[in-house]
């Protein structure tokens, strides 16, 4: 962070407008990039990266700085960080099913492993996290539990977003009951459903001053 950033961050904090770095985390394919694009489009008229049905599409951190989210009189400036999906295993064979050839699949797998490492390391640089889960899938996965545990251990403010509620198999209620102590916002990043609820939660949670 440059001196100017530090100074402006400090000034903003005095005048009650916060500037924070917010990461979007979750398993591959949860819709992180789709959500990052939705947020960036809504407030900055721009996109962050490519989304794809093929898992591990994002294999490097991608950022969009200084997005200003407004809620009535309150506003929050965020540097939005879209992260590679976190996994405990990456098998290049899985990519062959999507029509990638062997060489592409192996390259994608290698880059994906580096992406997972980068995503985990980036937890150190953030002020808050949106933990994105696919509400059509079982929430009790090791990846979700490990991310959640790390957010708690670091005392990072976070919101759980239950994505893809537009799909038939979606059960956001399962997700809510799975994490009763945490705020769960059901959304569709693709169709822009409930984004107002998410923005309200973001400004409230991430706008608070931390000790």
């Amino acid at each position: 962070m440059g001196i100017f950033d530090k100074l402006s961050g400090w000034l903003l904090s005095i005048f009650g407008k916060r500037h924070v770095a917010i990461g979007i985390y979750g398993p591959p394919n949860a819709g992180k990039t789709t959500l990052a694009n939705r947020i960036a489009m809504d407030w900055a008229g721009d996109v962050v990266g490519e989304s794809s049905e093929v898992p591990h599409e994002t294999r490097k951190i991608q950022k969009k700085d200084r997005i200003v989210i407004k809620q009535g009189k309150a506003s929050l400036t965020i540097d939005l960080v879209d992260t590679p999906g976190i996994a405990t295993k990456i098998d290049y064979h899985d990519f062959l099913e999507y029509g990638l050839d062997e060489e592409e699949a192996k390259k994608r797998a290698k880059e994906a492993t580096e992406g997972v490492i980068e995503a985990i390391k980036w937890l150190d640089n953030l002020d808050g996290v949106i933990l994105l889960m696919d509400s059509t899938k079982n929430p009790f996965t090791q990846v979700n539990i490990t991310i959640l545990g790390n957010l708690e251990a670091r005392e990072l403010p976070f919101i759980i977003a239950a994505n893809k509620i537009d799909l038939n198999g979606s059960t956001p209620a399962t997700l809510k009951s799975a994490f009763p102590k945490h705020e769960v916002v059901p959304i569709s990043a693709l169709n822009g459903v409930n984004m107002d609820l998410l923005y309200e939660a973001m400004v409230r949670k991430f706008g608070k001053k931390r000790k």
């Binding site: 492993t113 490492i117 985990i120 937890l123 539990i145 490990t146 545990g149």
Partner: peptide, 17 residues
């Protein structure tokens, strides 16, 4: 394992995949 250890183990695993 603690959550941090789990994350560390995932990182170390990814180096070996």
């Amino acid at each position: 394992l603690t959550a941090e250890e789990q994350a560390k183990l995932i990182e170390m695993t990814m180096e070996k995949v």
